[in-house]
């Protein structure tokens, strides 16, 4: 019979120490909206649960010279209620807003959504499109990793034993920038993405796209950064031809599976549709700021 122990350290060092000591038997508890479901479903049998919500830097939201930092365990509702962050990164908030019900978002965090490592995680494509960095702490010290490099496969991350994501940092936004995340699900909410599409773009004063990042969820073993799709926008006025090329590049980047949530053909086709729609909204937002 294994015992389940619970710890709630109040410092990063203490948490990292516990995780390193416990090794594979430890699970991090942030909001618990994945871990507790797995636990009750008998899908995991951890020996130690490390609750990280008492560590101050894990839940802080701050901005320095236009560059935002959000704690990995800050709840979804905390982010959504943070008017300045929400105004700066509406696409990220669109992803966060789709993680379950209000009750679930009252607990669930972006760090947890990333580290659960689902290819369909809703907050991950907009983080990737934003160019966010994951700030990681571990027994070997601190390091930063682009968000697109964190998930390595379904349920798998690049985190080493004892490592944890502490926060995310976002680049400072130039003027005329906009982002958007759209998700396709059969239901309006409480569902898992069949396709998720995030687009983040910047225009110059003349309306030409100078920078773009495009990310897709649920169409491959990991969320994708689709450089060909971004390239279809850069240097254009994001006209119909560019959007067609964007949609085609998004569909071409898909490497999905047939499963209970969608077929290969359906995912490939709708990935283009959703990416195009996300780009249209991101464009509209960029033009308005």
């Amino acid at each position: 019979m294994t015992e389940l122990n619970y710890a709630a350290p109040d410092s990063l060092d203490a948490a990292v120490g516990m995780l390193a000591d416990a090794g594979a038997g430890a699970r991090i508890l942030a909001g618990g909206t994945d871990v507790l479901v797995l636990l009750h479903g008998d899908l995991i049998e951890p020996e130690l649960i490390v609750d990280i919500k008492n560590i101050p830097e894990l839940t802080e939201i701050s901005v320095e010279d236009g560059a935002w930092r959000i704690g990995a365990a800050a709840s979804g509702m905390k982010l959504m209620d943070h008017e300045d962050f929400a105004a700066a990164w509406p696409g990220v908030i669109e992803g966060v807003a789709l993680i379950g019900s209000v009750q679930v978002k009252g607990r669930a965090s972006v760090g947890g959504n990333l580290c659960n490592a689902s290819p369909a995680a809703d907050s991950v494509p907009p983080l990737i499109a934003a160019g966010a960095m994951a700030n990681i702490a571990g027994p070997g010290g601190k390091r930063d990793l682009p968000v697109e490099d964190v998930i390595t496969g379904p349920g798998q991350t690049a985190l080493e034993a004892g490592e944890m994501v502490v926060s995310f940092t976002f680049p400072k936004r130039p003027p005329h920038s906009g982002d958007c995340y759209l998700r396709l699900t059969p239901r309006t909410e409480m569902d898992i993405a069949v396709v998720g599409a995030a687009v983040n773009l910047t225009l110059d004063d003349g309306g030409t796209c100078t920078a773009a990042r495009v990310s897709l969820g649920a169409v491959a073993p990991t969320p994708l950064l689709v450089e060909d799709a971004a390239a279809a926008l850069i240097g254009t006025s994001v006209d119909d031809a560019a959007l067609d090329a964007l949609a085609a590049a998004a569909s071409a980047a898909c490497d999905p599976i047939d499963d209970k949530r969608g077929t290969i053909a359906y995912r490939i086709k709708t990935a283009g549709v959703m990416t195009r729609r996300a780009a249209e909204t991101a464009l509209d937002r960029a033009r308005r700021n």
Binding site: P186, R187, T188, E189, M190, D191, I192, D259, K260, R261
Partner: peptide, 27 residues
């Protein structure tokens, strides 16, 4: 949306409200 999805081995692939898509209030 509601349907039972069976794997090739005859086991049920969607025995949860997450993947057995009953409508939610906003639907």
């Amino acid at each position: 949306n509601e349907e039972y999805i069976y794997r090739a081995d005859g086991t049920l692939d969607n025995p949860s409200f997450l993947d057995y898509r009953m409508p939610v209030a906003s639907d």
